[in-house]
Write a protein that binds this DNA or RNA. Structure first.
Length: 259
DNA sequence: ATGGCAAATATCATTTGA
């Protein structure tokens, strides 16, 4: 089973590229972020024509998330984890016996900015949400665009990024709280000694970031032990990032063996 | 502190992203 997370950076702007990718990649479960479409404008037909069920939670202009799967989505929840958050950044569904939580964590802009405080509230609420509703022995996947690097070496220049936004203790504290609760960073658990280009999931559009390898590892699957036990690989699709109409993020796929 | 690249809105410029 393949569970992909991808910050698509507008589902409508990338409809053609997305459909071609979907037909080829054929994930069983797909979590998208930054769909940038209101629900009434979401191109559900793209998914349905490809044989997928899809649920979405969007808003005008910014943010927006969706979950698609090759089986019906059950117990869909929208608007997590921060009560009253006007930004559409989180949803969850049950499929194939897994609870899947899809998040688009707040970017934060810069340390001290109101958006930075929103980011910390969001991450804290996410940790509380998981702790309050789940147990570490349940099959749970929390994936998405986390907008944080778990370690300085998850950046192209660890010296430059040290203690910068995405690499602060404040952002890592709630992330580590989730790890302490019972989730594991599937990529890092599977590849503890792999660093650099092959680990990045995002590259800056500006200044030829992909060619210069100005990348970050910020898209993650956090999984409970029963899911990690089934994990055979975590794959990052750099090929689709090379397309001229690419999102700045690559799709990241958790590969599970069947129970 | 700024620019660089891309998307959305409806602007012929601003906001946001990471």
């Amino acid at each position: 089973m393949r569970i992909t997370t991808w910050n698509i950076n507008s589902i409508r702007a990338r409809a053609e590229l997305f459909s071609a990718w979907l037909a080829k990649a054929q994930p069983d479960v797909l979590c998208l972020q930054e769909t940038k479409a209101q629900d009434k404008e979401f191109p559900a037909k793209l998914f349905e024509d490809a044989g997928y069920h899809v649920a979405f939670y969007g808003q005008k202009t910014y943010n927006g998330v969706a979950i698609a799967a090759r089986a019906p989505l059950e117990d869909v929840e929208r608007g997590l984890p921060l009560d009253g958050d006007p930004e559409a950044r989180g949803m969850a569904a049950t499929v194939f016996g897994l609870r899947v939580i899809n998040v688009y964590v707040v970017n934060g802009k810069e340390l001290g900015d109101p958006k930075w405080h929103h980011k910390l509230r969001f991450l804290d609420a996410l940790a509380g949400y998981v702790e309050g509703r789940h147990r570490p022995d349940q099959p749970l996947v929390v994936c998405g665009d986390w907008n944080l690097c778990p370690a300085d070496r998850d950046t192209w220049d660890p010296g430059e990024w040290h203690r910068q936004i995405f690499c602060t203790e404040e952002e890592r504290a709630p992330f580590r709280r989730l790890l302490a609760w019972g989730l594991q960073d599937a990529f890092r658990s599977r590849y503890p000694e792999t660093w650099g280009r092959s680990t990045f999931t995002w590259w800056d559009y500006r200044g030829g970031g992909f060619a210069r390898n100005h990348g970050l590892r910020i898209d993650h699957h956090l999984v409970t032990a029963p899911v990690l036990a089934r994990t055979t690989a975590v794959e990052i699709d750099r090929e689709v990032r090379k397309h001229e109409k690419a999102s700045d993020h690559a799709p990241v796929t958790l590969v599970l063996r069947e129970d």
